[in-house]
Design a protein around this nucleic acid. Sequence first.
DNA 1: GTGGCGTCC
DNA 2: CAGAGGGACGCCACT
Length: 693
Amino acid sequence: MNLIQNHHSLAALYESVASITAKKQRDNLIRYRDQAFLSRDLVKIDVDAPVSADLAEFEISAADTEALAGLFQTLEFRQLQHALSQKTDLSDKDYQPILSKEALNRLIERLKSARIFSLDTETTSPIPMKARLVGLSFALQANEAFYIPCGHDYIGAPPQLPLTEVLNKLRPILEDPAIQKVGQNIKYDWIVLNRHGVKLDGVVFDTMVASYLLNPSKRAHNLDQIALDFLGHKTIPYQEVAGKGKNALTFNQVLLEKAVPYACEDADITLMATDVLMPQLQEIELQHLMENVEMPLVPVLMNMEMTGTCVDIDRLHELSKSFAHQLEALEGSIYGLAGEAFNINSSKQLGNILFNKLQLPVLKKTKKKTGYSTDVDVLTRLAEEHEMPALVLKHRTLSKLKSTYADALVDLVNPETGRIHTSFNQTVTATGRLSSSDPNLQNIPIRSAEGMEIRRAFVPRKGWKLVSADYSQVELRILAHYSNDRILIKAFLDDEDIHARTASEVFQVSTSDVTGELRRQAKAINFGIIYGMSAFGLSKQLNIGQKMAQTYIDHYFARYKGVKAFIDETLTAAHQSKRTSTLLGRIRLLPDIDSRNRVVRQAAERTAINTPIQGSAADLIKLAMIDVASAIREKKLESAMLLSVHDELIFEVPPHELEPLQTLVKEIMEGVWELKVPLKVNLAVGDNWAEAH
DNA sequence: GTGGCGTCC
DNA sequence: CAGAGGGACGCCACT
């Protein structure tokens, strides 16, 4: 039996079901599949493995057909199916364009006296640091919304109110903290408005963030999804308005006839969704997290993104050139050993050379068993038998550094600001962490010497310094707190080297006899505990036998009895409640915790253990970011928070603020929450990110 | 669009 | 007996 776990096979399943169901049903099924996949808690069906790669030949057993039939009859499915089969119905909607001063004045009067309203911006780009404002929409009550176009410039576009005038008139409302606003992904609009000279205030709710808190495991929290999930409403597809592919229009080119209903619907749905989401947050006690953590974090992230980070473009160019030279030399050597030229970046071609031509032993297949694995593990072991694998590894490293960092970062420098503006996404990770993209500044290299050179290209503005503040062993401290483990707590109270302490306990030697090697092994054990690693995993990690690994784990739990108890209790609670939660009450649903499939169930159990630890660390750093940001504002410091990398914050600091900034950051971060062990923050200062570490 | 791989915490 | 480590993002090849 094979569990449907990915989009591809689920799609295949639906395709095959479709062949045995009516045509109409089939269309709905196919349209349904994204949603079905999304709510992993809804669809969980075992089917026989595909008999061929051809999707059409996917076979389902009688029992599975029955299970599917059951699925089709669930209320949730039928509702979604119904919603999806509907054409968007605008007949009961009152959506109006605002084209005259009089109409704008009337709208403004209503906005002034509104209890709460939603707003949405339409722009020329999905990148808020580049977007130009094209229009704004507002909704004050359900089924009614207004769109103020002020930048549609296609030939024949009707006369519109000038952007400056619109913003000047709206400014007192938008900047009034007492007038409550809601939005969908409001950080985007906040940045766009900020760049157009309007400092939004009074933002109390973001539907995207709310949807995320209710179920952080969902694939997406966009408005279309929210409309479907929470309102059973099918929204106007963006493609219908702007087209798709390379012919897609930017919103300034969209006809008003199409723009008005689309833009109005966004504001309308946002407001209606707010009414549904707010009580749901209250019901499961997420309101505190929403009001005191996630919403206050939004403008903090906005400021970080808008400030951006300075990079030394010349250095990146130099590095790219140097990498290119080294890659060329490596290619020559590798082709020589292979006896032919091939694409080293293709694991398929590389596998052919290594395992067919050179007849090296196959140590591992790829995940889907379709080919030979050539990952770092395999190549490292093969390096003992042949010269080529080591050269390929070197090639991989340099190729990665060149393409992903040296070359890509340069392209993301904003021409207006000369800096790199990452996006911090607040609604992506299942645990509560932030993620960073375009570019991802949370995975800038640090381990290898060449990687460090990339990090060296991250610099402060002229005359300033970079300061980093990182939580020391924050996850293990949280484990100590949760488990109340005697040994762990004492170790942190005494500010011991935690991995050395573990080595001493597990290997039964005095701390003075802990060698580097023992400490390394203990470190792997500590992380293994947090991640729920098995004896198999540990044995692979440490290159020891599985028996030995199991012995280590047994020794660990014999010494750290509190940790053992914590894991047992957490699992019991998870099985009982089908969820797991963090220090601040963030939740993660665990639909698979009682799965009859052992692999699936155990994965859920690891999640149940890891999420409170990883997620609580995320809670704490988010709180710290909010407090540090307000302290910087209150003390009127020039220093700016630039980045957050899971347990670390990076600041750009003028020389005269170095001392006060560091004191303040350390105090706030260490004092952000009282645990049974102290929180510890390490500070570093430098002229680039490599030095400030 | 998916799979393989590698970078980070 | 297979499958056995949490969370991300992004590049390249391939289909």
